[in-house]
Design a protein around this nucleic acid. Structure first.
Lengths: 221, 221
DNA sequence: GCCTGTGAACTCGTTCACAGCC
DNA sequence: GGCTGTGAACGAGTTCACAGGC
C-alpha cells in the first residue's frame, strides 16, 4: 500500500471535493458488494454518473492510489477513503432537541456503518426528559450538556431544536468543546473560528423545489 | 409596486442563487418581526453575514426591487421573494417511507408557514399501514401512490425509505407525475429529464464533519 | 450624501488533453 | 493498448468598483 500524501493543507481541499470523497466511498462499498475488484475512473464515472477527470483529480490530492493502465483497487481505495475521511475511528454524536427529527436521528447510527454513534439525546422540556427514544437512549436534561460531552467523549453536536433555541444551544455546544456541529434548525447560526458548522435547511430545499415547479425545470436536472 | 422581470430564463439562474433567495426570504421575515421597514444590501449583509454585492446581483435577476440611495422595502421584498419562489400557492407533499424520519417530517408543515402541506405518508410495510403519525395522518399503502397523488394534487415527493427501496420509489413517483423529489436515502438516484431531484444525504454531511475533525478546521469556517 | 444595479476583474471549480507509466 | 496524474483551458460564481439615480 502506498502511503497517504504527507502534507495536504486542509484549506487547499475544497469542500466540494470532501463531499465527493464521501460519495466515492459509497461507490466503493457498492462495487465491493458486487464483487468488483478493480475499477477505472472512467468506468466509475459511467456507473455512478460522475466525471472521470474530477474523480482522478479529487483522489490525487491525497496520494497516488491508482495504477496506470489498470485503475484503482476497490478494497484498497475504500480503505484510503475511510482513512482520509477520518472514519477509521468512531465519532460520537450528541443530539440536542428530542422532537421528532431528533429522535428519528437517534436511529441513524444504523445506516452509517461503524463510524458514527449517537451517545446522547438531550432536551430542556421537563416533559420529554426521561422518555426513551426508538434508538433505546433516554432523553436527558440539556443543562447537563457539558458534563455529558466530557463523559462520553462527544465530538459532533446535532441541533434539532426549534429555530428560536438554536443559537443558544449552539453556544452551549461550543462551550462544551464540540468542534463540529450539524444544524437542522432553519436559522443562520454564528460560531467562533475553529468550530465547524454545517446547516441542513429543509425549508431551503423545499423552497428550491417550489421555485422550479413555478418556473419550469431546466433540462440538465 | 414594480413588476417582476418578465423573462428570466430559468436556466440563467444558478441553483446557488435560488438557495440564497430562500435565505433572503427568511431575513425579510426576521426584519419584519423586528419592525424594520427598510434595509440596504449592506445592512442586510452585515446583519446576516452575507455579501452585499451578491444580494444585489441575486435580486437584480428578477427585477429592480430597490430604491437608490435608500435600499429595499422589507415587506415589499418579502412579497417579491414569495412570488419568485412560487410560494404564493400551497405546495402539497407526499412522503414515502413511514420510518422515523418520514413520520418526523409529517410535522414539518408547521415550520414552513403556509406554503407546504404534507398530504400523505405511505409505506409498503403492512405493519405500518394504518398507523397514525404525530402529524395526525394515517400511513397508507405505497402501492396507492399514483391514485393518492392525483386525488390530493401532490406536487413534491419525499423519499425516506431505506437506500435499497429508494430508486424503485423514485421511479414510481415519476410515474405518478411528481416533478420535484426530495430524497433522504443515501443513494445517487436517477430521474429522467423534466424531473427535479434534490438529495439530502446525512451521511455525506457527517463524513464531511469527520474529515475536518481528522484534519483540522480551516479558519474561514 | 447614500445606495442600487451592473460591467469588469478576479477567484474558484471543472473539464480537457496529453505526457508518462503499466 | 489502456489508464493515471496533471498542467492548461475553460467556465461558473463571486467580488470589486463605479456610473446612475434618489
Amino acid at each position: 500500500m502506498v502511503s497517504l500524501k504527507r502534507r495536504f493543507g486542509v484549506s487547499d481541499i475544497s469542500e466540494l471535493t470532501v463531499a465527493r470523497l464521501s460519495i466515492y466511498l459509497r461507490c466503493m462499498e457498492e462495487l465491493e458488494r458486487l464483487g468488483v475488484e478493480t475499477v477505472s475512473s472512467q468506468e466509475m464515472a459511467k456507473r455512478f454518473h460522475l466525471n472521470s477527470a474530477q474523480i482522478r483529480k479529487d483522489l490525487a490530492y491525497f496520494g497516488e492510489f491508482g495504477v496506470r493502465g489498470v485503475g484503482y483497487n476497490v478494497t484498497e481505495l475504500k480503505q484510503y477513503l475511510i482513512e482520509i475521511l477520518g472514519l477509521s475511528r468512531e465519532r460520537r454524536i450528541i443530539i440536542v432537541g428530542a422532537g421528532n427529527l431528533g429522535t428519528a436521528l437517534c436511529h441513524y447510527s444504523r445506516f452509517t456503518g461503524e463510524s458514527f454513534l449517537v451517545v446522547g439525546i438531550l432536551d430542556d422540556d421537563p416533559g420529554r426528559i426521561g422518555e426513551s427514544t426508538p434508538g433505546g437512549l433516554l432523553v436527558e436534561d440539556a443543562s447537563r450538556l457539558g458534563e455529558i460531552v466530557r463523559q462520553r467523549e462527544g465530538e459532533i453536536g446535532v441541533i434539532t431544536t426549534p429555530a428560536e433555541r438554536a443559537q443558544q444551544v449552539c453556544d452551549q455546544m461550543v462551550q462544551a468543546h464540540l468542534r463540529a456541529i450539524l444544524n437542522f434548525a432553519p436559522v443562520q447560526l454564528n460560531v467562533p473560528k475553529g468550530v465547524l458548522l454545517r446547516t441542513v435547511d429543509l425549508r431551503v430545499h423545499l423552497e428550491e423545489l417550489s421555485f422550479y415547479l413555478a418556473h419550469g425545470i431546466p433540462d440538465d436536472g
